[in-house]
Each structure stands twice: as structure tokens, then as C-alpha cells.
Design a protein around this nucleic acid. Structure first.
Lengths: 294, 294
DNA sequence: ACCGAGCCATTAGAAAACCTAACGACGGGA
DNA sequence: TCCCGTCGTTAGGTTTTCTAATGGCTCGGT
């Protein structure tokens, strides 16, 4: 017998546990077809069917039961040895602001957990940008006008800060869209960045009412959602609420912000493969593909 | 920790057993570089060095020892289960003629053994072409003028029967090369196919001496090697002796033979993956690449 | 009986993993 | 010091593996 493909056997084992290819595929982060193929591959290699395909999932043949039992036992031994031996760099600390946490990270937590089931994520919320350097396994995400200049860090641009004015769909009035002049007559909601104030200054106009101030972007957005007025925020913070129709975009500032969102992490000499994968995940979430220009 | 690459772990285990990457690579039918990379891959994945590279082979770190122990145990469990379960089609019977065995198969036995360490090969020597049909795991190789017509068989053309006249290098005379007329004045050695006789008939010439007849091509060739005369044989039977300079080619018949060497095996509905691989091996040995036109 | 939902298999083509070949480095023994 | 045996690294080609799309099957409800 040619040495069996152990990775394929593990896939089989997962299927055997679930009694269902679809389900196993999800757990393994694979497509159904991939799992199906791997199992067929093993069956061809060892020359015996391992599972019976039914309309309601799969069940094991006797040979399949034997294999599954052996794999379970073997995998337990291997996993135990590996977790004894593995460098425990499965801890990652994420330093972010409260609103980024509430509006961007929270909606993606489930996906993160699924992509990195073995990573223990600690999130630290900071009200202002961290002043100390990043250590091993730490990632910071913050808006800025340039990449992190700290030479011990690596830094990547994630996205522009595209601003948008949003309000509750109930708040919508028949005379949309409107210019900035009309906009400034409405109840305005702003956060610590005071973007309405700055906008008023820039255009020389004066709001009809002084804007309502909130300590955090997330609170201003929540107020907007509840129909209290018009908030202004970076696009990445409102994506989820727009999709859920809790907010609608009613206006965009004429000129783009000169700020961007940046991610930094400590340069790692070796190990740190996990960190790098998490970093890549953020890049992909922000549509940055996987260019490792490093 | 992301699920480890079990195939890579097996490679590591082999290296650990041999204490030597080079050696392990040979056992695994891989190049050194491949093995080296696999191990580096694991070390990165688990974040710990597993072996210490020295000028005189490699030795295990404590982590490496732990992993190797676990892998040994786990692989024993898996192998045991698989050999319980596997359809035992690792038996292959090869039906060939005695000279094909002596002159083509024997020089390749070592390579065959290395390519299919798990296959038990039984070779059955037949003095004339088999008259019964082929069963599961049986392969026949025979010269013929057309593919095996038996509908239960699959058949592939392996090579033309390119004939060549050969003799010992010591037998070589200063007046080479020579035409067929001169050739027919020499001591001729032929096998059951009586190719010299047929050649004489075809050209209307008559040999100076009646050719010496041998029951098997291999015997005629051995006689030629010992300087007793000139033998005529298909090219695939003399390749090895030509390479080893035990024979030299001195003449080729003007027109190609209309015969070819064909390989047949029973059509298999499923399983029989091993047979198929062996079949492919023969094809590759005969320079047929791997067109699976099936 | 018919339809739709829930599975699974099978493809071709794209993506990723893998292997080889060629080179360079390093240490130990002559 | 040179040579031999070993390992590491890289670029490039090859094989494996994955995805996405399609089709078939069996159930249970209407």
C-alpha cells in the first residue's frame, strides 16, 4: 500500500464525526466538493469504501468505523504532543478604539473566531492612541495621516477614511438629497473629531443648532439610528448598519479626508506565524488582497 | 494552533528515524530540498525547532524527540488500521516471456521495487503467449501485430520491435560497417523467431553457414556476448547490454518490423488503483509519458 | 404524484502546495 | 588547506488541492 495521505485521513475523520459532509466542510473551512474529493481519494487509495452516502448524510461502513477509531486515537496522541511542544504564540492582543470595536470588529467577531479557532484574542480598548511600543503578538489599528514611523513596527495602510453623513431611515425627508447648506440646518450629531464643526468652518457656513457632542463615534451613530439627527462617520464604521438598513447615507463631504486607517505590529524575527496570518486576515477584510510586499 | 500538516509530520518522523535528511529523502523518494522544506514548514507552524542540523547529519531537540515518539505511536495505529481495512490488491502477477524477463525486466527490478515497495510482484514466465484471459491484478506483455482483441482487457502499445544485429565488442572487425551480404557470411545466432532465416529469404541471399539456433532470445544474445557470432534481437532486449558495452550494434534491418510490444490487463471497475500505477510505470519506462487516454 | 429541500458527486479551471535542480555554506577529516 | 559529506535556500515547473457551478438522488410535504 502506498503510504496513505494523512491529511486526507484527517478530513475523513472529521466527516465521520459529523456524519455529514456539508457540516464537516464548514468546520474545516473547505468546500463540500473538496471534502468529497478527498474522501474518494482515500477510498481509491485503500481500495475499500469507507462511508455510505445517503440522502440524509453519510454513515460509516465497518471499514470506515475502524479507520475512524484509529484516526481518533492517533490524532489525540499527535495533538497532545504538539500542544506540549508548540511555542504558545496563540495569544494575540488587539489595541483599538471603542467605536472601531463596536462598529467594525464586533460584527466580524464570529468570522474571526471561525478563521482562527485556535487563537485567543484579547481586545484592549483605548480612548486615545497607544503611546507605548507594541510587543510580541500585539496589533494596533488606528486612524492617522501616515504609517507608524516606529522602526520596530511594521505598518500597513488599511483604508481611506471616507466620511459619510448618515441618519435613520425614519428620519428621511422627501426633499433628499440636499446640499450642505440644508444639511447644516438639521440636528447634527458628532463625536470627538468634531467633524461637523470643522466642516462648518471649512465652508464658512454656520449650523442652525450647535451640534450635539458625543464622546464616542459609536454613541453618535446610535443616536442617529434612533432618529435624533444626522451623524458623520468614516465609512468602515457604518457598513454593518447600512447593510442592516438601520442607517442610510444621505451625503458625502466633497473632498476626501487626508486620514487613513493604519495597522501596526511588532516586527518578528521568527515564529509569529500566527500573528502574520491574523494581520493578513485584516488586510483581506479591508479588501487589500494578500500582497506581502514585506 | 492551526491543524498541523500530518504529511509533513510523517516526513519529519522518517528523518528522525534516520538521523539524516539525505537518507530519509531517498527512502521517501524525494529530493533533499523537499524534505528540508517540509521540516522547516513544521518548525514554523509549531514555532519550535525540532532538530539540530550538524555537519554529520541531524539530531533531535527535546521537542523533536517528543514529536517523533508521538508520531511513531500514531503511525503504528493508523498503519495497523489501514492494513486491516485495505483491499489487498497489492499482489500483481506479470506474465512475460523468458527473454523479456532476462533482458528487460531484470535490469529494472531494482527500480520497480523502489517505485512500488508495497507491491508483491509475481512473475510468471511463459514460453508461448498465454491463452487464458487475465484476472484481477494480472498483466501480460507480449509481442504482437495488433492490440489484444479480448474485450475484457485493456491493451496498450509499448514500443515497435526495432531489430538490430549485435555482437561482442571483441568480435568487431576492421571492415565494419558492412552490408547484409557480408553479414550473412558470419556465424549467425538466432532464436525461435528465426529472423536470420527470414531475412535471408526476404533478400534472396543465402547464409554462408546455417545459423545457430537457440530456444530463447536471451541465449542467442549471451552467445553473441561471448563472441560466438552475430545475433539479431529487438532493441528493448539489448539496451542494457549495449549500455554496459557487452554488445555493440553493427547493423539494422532496412525495413521496420510490423510487430510491436503490447501490454494487456483486465479492465477494472473500481479499486485496482495499484495495478493502474504499475501499468503507468511500464508506459513511462517505454517512454510513453502518461497519456491516460482511457 | 409532484415539487422543493437537503444532500451528495462530478467537472473544469484557478489557486496553492509541493518537488526538483542548482547553487552556496559549513564543519570535520586527510 | 583542501576535499567530502552534509544542510539551507531559491526560482521555476509540476502536481495536488480547492472552488464554483452543475446535475442527480432521496426524502417529506401538498
Amino acid at each position: 500500500m502506498p503510504p496513505a495521505n494523512l491529511n486526507a485521513l484527517r478530513v475523513f475523520s472529521t466527516v465521520a464525526e459529523h456524519g455529514n459532509i456539508q457540516c464537516a466542510a464548514e468546520v474545516l473551512n473547505l468546500s463540500r466538493g473538496a471534502v468529497s474529493q478527498r474522501i474518494k481519494q482515500i477510498e481509491l487509495e485503500i481500495g475499500t469504501p469507507l462511508l455510505v452516502r445517503g440522502a440524509r448524510g453519510v454513515s460509516l461502513t465497518p471499514a470506515g468505523k475502524r479507520c475512524h477509531a484509529a484516526m481518533t486515537e492517533a490524532l489525540a496522541i499527535i495533538d497532545s504532543a504538539l500542544s506540549d511542544v508548540a511555542g504558545h504564540d496563540g495569544w494575540i492582543t488587539l489595541h483599538i478604539g471603542p467605536s472601531f470595536m463596536a462598529k467594525w470588529m464586533m460584527p466580524r467577531m464570529e468570522r474571526f473566531r471561525k478563521a482562527f479557532p485556535w487563537v485567543s484574542l484579547a481586545t484592549e480598548i483605548h480612548n486615545r492612541v497607544m503611546d507605548r511600543g507594541l510587543g510580541r503578538g500585539e496589533i494596533a489599528i488606528w486612524p492617522d495621516t501616515a504609517p507608524d514611523p516606529n522602526p520596530a513596527h511594521q505598518s500597513r495602510h488599511l483604508t481611506e477614511l471616507r466620511l459619510a453623513a448618515v441618519c435613520s431611515p425614519d428620519f428621511l425627508r422627501p426633499d433628499w438629497p440636499m446640499g450642505p447648506e440644508t444639511l447644516l440646518t438639521l440636528p447634527l450629531l458628532q463625536d470627538g473629531h468634531r467633524r461637523w464643526d470643522r466642516l462648518a468652518e471649512a465652508t464658512g457656513q454656520r449650523p442652525a443648532h450647535a451640534p450635539l457632542n458625543f464622546g464616542r463615534s459609536a454613541l453618535a451613530l446610535d443616536a442617529a439610528m434612533n432618529g435624533h439627527g444626522v451623524a458623520i462617520a468614516p465609512h468602515h464604521m457604518i457598513e454593518a448598519d447600512l447593510r442592516a438598513k438601520r442607517l442610510v447615507e444621505i451625503w458625502f463631504p466633497p473632498e476626501p479626508s487626508n486620514e487613513g486607517l493604519y495597522m501596526s505590529w511588532a516586527k518578528e524575527q521568527n515564529g509569529g506565524r500566527h500573528l502574520r496570518r491574523v494581520v493578513d486576515w485584516f488586510l483581506v477584510e479591508f479588501g487589500q488582497g494578500h500582497r506581502r510586499q514585506e
